[in-house]
């Protein structure tokens, strides 16, 4: 897994914005808020949150409405809505590019997009300095179906290309964890047993929050140096050295860059 690349606060008209690129997915997020809310959406005690997801091609469909609902419910639990009563926090996410193989992976493409949408929304919220309870990190886990008896390991944050190679995929899971390690969101699709879900959940927790037993630098998210993949009868070696950090550390490095940019004038004097 390669670290996502992020540009923060690059839109001038929005209060907060972020462009997020990872695994061929590229999303622009913009946050406006707290702003005036329409009378019918106004909540007397807390801020209303509006999420707009725009697809890369065409206009929104029920698929986008479903993603908006998932995002809305997840973000509402981390934004301190009670500190901004009778206001609106408007989050707009424009999908800019999708990987070429996105349509042919054979898995639910709204699930493969979901972790990226969550990350973009969070980064845009951080950029807009909306008060939040905690942060979140999300990851996609795919479990390819194992031919015969050999067990195929789960794929962690696979790219669309990985998913095509390891067809057929039996189940995909999306997990989102809060900064303090609590689970915020789980969406699963396909056939899986409870043990398999449990294993996927543990795996996601290690990636999102980092493993506490080990030192932060020494984290390994995949066993051994490489993972054996069964794809059309051929075993392939995928190098797992690419990423050693947890997503939590990645988020911290993004924020550190933002703070350093803001404090530049202070250090110069």
């Amino acid at each position: 897994m390669i670290e996502p690349t992020v540009t923060l606060t690059h839109l001038h008209r929005a209060d907060g914005s972020a462009t997020y690129t990872h695994n061929g997915y590229s999303i622009i997020g913009a946050v406006n808020g707290p702003i005036e809310v329409q009378r019918r959406d106004e909540l007397p005690e807390e801020a209303a949150i509006e999420v707009n997801v725009r697809p890369s091609i065409g206009v929104g469909s029920p698929r986008e409405r479903h993603q908006e609902t998932l995002l809305h419910n997840t973000l509402r639990s981390i934004i301190l809505t009670r500190t901004l009563p009778r206001a609106l926090i408007q989050i707009t996410l424009q999908v800019r590019t999708l990987p070429l193989e996105d349509g042919t992976t054979g898995v639910n493409s709204s699930l493969t997009l979901l972790p990226h949408l969550l990350h973009t929304a969070l980064l845009a919220l951080l950029s807009a300095s909306i008060p939040m309870r905690t942060t979140l990190t999300a990851v996609l886990i795919a479990q390819p179906s194992s031919p015969a008896k050999n067990i195929v390991p789960s794929l962690l944050s696979p790219s669309a290309h990985d998913l095509v190679r390891s067809k057929p995929v039996r189940a995909v899971h999306v997990f989102a964890f809060a900064g303090d390690g609590r689970m915020l969101l789980n969406e699963s699709d396909g056939r899986f047993s409870f043990e398999e879900w449990n294993e996927a959940c543990r795996m996601a927790e290690v990636v999102c929050c980092g493993e506490e037993e080990e030192e932060e630098e020494e984290e390994e998210e995949k066993d051994g140096g490489g993972v054996e993949l069964e794809a059309e009868g051929e075993a392939m070696d995928v190098d797992a050295q690419a990423q050693k950090e947890s997503l939590d550390l990645w988020l911290r490095s993004v924020v550190r860059r933002k703070v350093e940019g803001e404090q530049r004038w202070r250090r110069a004097t």
Binding site: I78, L126, M132, T135, G179, D180, L251, V255, Q263
Partner: peptide
């Protein structure tokens, strides 16, 4: 001035 200020994330 402190060399590197403590970076905070929500939470």
């Amino acid at each position: 001035m402190a060399a590197s200020p403590a970076v905070l994330l929500p939470g």
